[in-house]
Design a protein around this nucleic acid. Structure first.
Lengths: 161, 161
DNA sequence: CTAGATTCGTTCCCTGAAGGAACTGACCTT
DNA sequence: AAGGTCAGTTCCTTCAGGGAACGAATCTAG
């Protein structure tokens, strides 16, 4: 975790980073998303320190991204599953994949392909405007102050959610 | 920078994180995107350590996300501007904003609003399939192995790009 | 011409986060 | 009872981040 807290800034980027901006967190999210959901599995898949993995999982559960679920009580066994909030966060992973595929994959090509259920084709994500459905990229928008502009430090984080 | 290098993993998420996954990097990108482009300006806007800011800027330039441009030579003054690669990376910021607005903004509402040039409306980004234009979320896809699946450690990073 | 002011960093020290390995504890299998 | 599996916790060392001071190059005021 970085020393400077991002969660109190009046910026949705900073507040998102506060939740999944720490090293390893997005990769943990990816693992849970693709079905690697148990502590031991994640640790081996990523090669992450067990200490850091335990910290990250606890933080993601506290922030409502993951849920710690007991799938066996007699030998007490747990798995981590995505909440609705966490599933929405996976959108971010898809956009990371797209950028990484384009600019870091090299000649070998993308390591993973995505087939869209609706059309059955191998494809990738594009950003569209929620109002007019046309492409909406960073260069296509004006930035205006919003209602929460002055609320730095006022948004409470409920540890249970 | 995290100690474990992500750049050599056969995963586009990890390789994207290698470029902008370090603490502060996405916020630096945001600042440059909104026009806060000089060292001093960024440092004051974010409250980041000058040492870390210098490291991050150097890394982003090495990786072709930013360009260090001299805008005055007599007093030697520099600014950082987005490359095409860096501009595409800003897509990621828009998706972060969307998630942060929905799940961390609270009652105060989003701190910033986005007006789409094409339609003139306040809106936000949605993820669509590049083939069929229908919504494409994390739950709408199957994951298949791609050509670069076995290329861990083989992708060269050219420091000049 | 010396004294600030501005911009863009670099150097220093201190704290704290990450890596890695060993350890714990609950339960199951043989 | 001996060993295996799972899910962490504890400990130590190293390295990255925070913060402040310093440096260099150039303009501006007096």
């Amino acid at each position: 975790m970085q020393r400077t807290r991002f969660g109190d800034m009046a910026c949705s980027i900073a507040r998102t980073l506060d939740v999944i901006g720490e090293p390893w967190s997005p990769l943990i999210l990816r693992d849970v998303y693709v079905g690697i959901s148990r502590f031991e599995q994640i640790q081996q898949d990523l090669g992450i320190s067990r200490k850091v993995l335990a910290e990250r999982l606890r933080w993601l559960v506290e922030n409502g991204v993951l849920e710690r679920r007991e799938y066996s009580s007699r030998p007490p066994r747990h798995e981590y599953v995505l909440t609705a909030k966490g599933t929405e966060l996976c959108d971010l992973l898809l956009v990371m994949v797209r950028w990484g595929d384009r600019f870091t994959a090299g000649e070998a090509g993308p390591p993973v392909l995505y087939r869209h259920h609706a059309c059955g084709e191998i494809s990738h994500v594009e950003l569209r405007c929620s109002v007019c459905d046309k492409p909406m990229r960073a260069t296509d928008i004006d930035i205006l102050p919003g209602p929460g502009i002055a609320s730095a430090g006022q948004t409470e984080r409920a540890p249970g959610d």
